[in-house]
């Protein structure tokens, strides 16, 4: 079982690394969207600092949302998804491997680039550290919950808008606590509560989302 997890993870990472240009797209999108806000609103440091947590978090959320498509789409189109479902390994584990790969390819790069954006938006250093922590806890949940949505819409033609319609409401708690943690940290207050909440949601999503995703995949495949 662990072996299956490991091999699928390696396979997905290897496949993604073979098309490097695609890999950078969500990251560029993330930076680009954040850049739009100082241009659209105002570049004064004070104003930037108040909106920074929300802007960075919303952009990260949209970047993950746009990249969710590649979680199952290619495998669905070339039939390897059906092969995965036929394998004797529990589908939950395989789903978890694919989600882990997705997080390594989109969530983690977002976490790494986030400090740069924190500097762009003139966030104080403590807040940047909390931003990293909150993204580190929050982005896996975005991938996990997103996987449920993708597995339901992967067979639908032009499912992109539909996916955001069904997934965005479910992302709201993460957004609230993630952005609030950064906001509170910028004011120099403790943020343990928010980070603990994000951790709790991560634990919940980690245990339930793969289950829901595998049920959803079987529904999609039975079509």
């Amino acid at each position: 079982m662990l072996k299956a997890y490991y091999h699928l993870l390696i396979r997905d990472l290897r496949l993604a690394l073979r098309s490097r240009h695609e890999l950078a797209n969500p990251l560029i999108f993330f930076v680009l969207v954040v850049t739009l806000f100082p241009l659209a609103v105002t570049p004064t440091p004070d104003a930037l600092q108040t909106m920074a947590p929300g802007v960075i978090w919303v952009s990260a959320l949209l970047a993950v949302l746009l990249s969710l498509d590649r979680l199952f789409k290619l495998d669905y189109e070339d039939g390897s998804l059906d092969q995965l479902m036929l394998s004797p390994n529990p589908l939950m584990i395989l789903v978890l491997a694919k989600v882990t790969a997705h997080w390594f390819l989109t969530g983690l790069p977002l976490v790494i680039i986030a400090p740069l954006l924190g500097i762009f938006m003139s966030l104080p250093a403590e807040a940047v550290i909390v931003l990293i922590y909150s993204l580190l806890l929050g982005t896996p949940v975005l991938s996990l919950v997103g996987a449920i949505g993708v597995s339901l819409t992967v067979a639908v033609n032009r499912g992109g808008v539909l996916l955001s319609l069904i997934i965005l409401p479910l992302y709201i708690p993460i957004l609230i606590f993630g952005a609030n943690a950064v906001d509170v940290a910028a004011d120099g207050l403790p943020v343990t509560g928010q980070l603990l909440f994000l951790g709790a949601v991560l634990a919940l999503a980690l245990s339930l989302a793969p289950l829901a995703t595998s049920v959803a995949l079987r529904i999609t495949a039975s079509r």
Binding site: I148, L152, P169, P173, I176, A212, A216
Partner: peptide, 17 residues
């Protein structure tokens, strides 16, 4: 399935809001 996922999420959404 989406409705069931929603029901698990509703309390979380409600209390976070």
């Amino acid at each position: 399935l989406l409705a069931i996922v929603g029901v698990v999420n509703i309390p979380i959404i409600h209390y976070s809001v």
